[in-house]
Amino acid sequence: MTRLPELERELQRAAEALERRRRPWWRISLLGGGATFALAATAFAAAELLLPEGDPVPKAPPEQRASLPDMDPGTTRLTSLRAEDPGGGLPWGLSVTRDKAGNIFCAQVGRVQDGKLGVIGRDGTFKDDGRFHPLSPDANQSGVCGGSPPGGDLRLSHNGPPIPASGFTGSFLSPAGGCREHVANPKATMSPQTRRKLRNVPVCKASSLRVVKYGFAGRGAVEIEYGGVRIKADPEESGAYLFVLKPRKGRRLTLNVKYDDGTVCRERSVMDIEPCP
């Protein structure tokens, strides 16, 4: 007896149905008098798939940590903001952590599972193990930091190149692995040493890359729009925003923030920011 006799029966039934469908129409007509077939679309409970949890993302190397603010892991908070991934799967989230002196805060993005921020073992990361790997504030993962204003009204905007859908933005030469950007003419742009170093690092698939735009527009923000996606700003989260899009060639993306006093702030690039209140 099989472990799933019900599945065996269902497969046999489905195989019989396929055989009937494959018979020539004149045989169907003779046998069933021109029977019509209606395939019922059975509703399946969409089984929620929690990824098995793997090792945490390794910490940044000491030399890199030395140049970073001394973060207080106890202050890390995952904001309520979530963004869908264009390819589906775990949503993206944004977390904030303050430094021990309380002068600086840093933001990190990644995929969210079970209230935790992390990365997925794919796109060369963690040998494509398909697991969820939690992120800590001192992990080998890039982020963005800004000054912490006394009232806690955060203002910060991150700009960066597209990142893999794994959510891992740390070094692909770290033990976590990862993929690298495609370089059209490596001989012209990279030294032989660099080329040797990158020889075994896979190139990110274009379909796996995501434009991830995130930051805090402040409590006065009412509405935030980026790449055609519009969200309502939450003053409780200091107008946090997070957009995840597929990169498109030639698309010029602008961040538009509407404030409660009617002013609009437009950010096309780091060097092109109109005065915001």
């Binding site: 799933l4 396929l18 589906g88 775990l90």
Partner: peptide, 28 residues
Amino acid sequence: SRSLERGRVENEVRQRLAMQPLELDDHA
């Protein structure tokens, strides 16, 4: 891998074949 990417178990083909969802008891 496709199920992990999408965050749910794929069921497109079972739907196409009109297969009933599995109901597992403790024994199974």
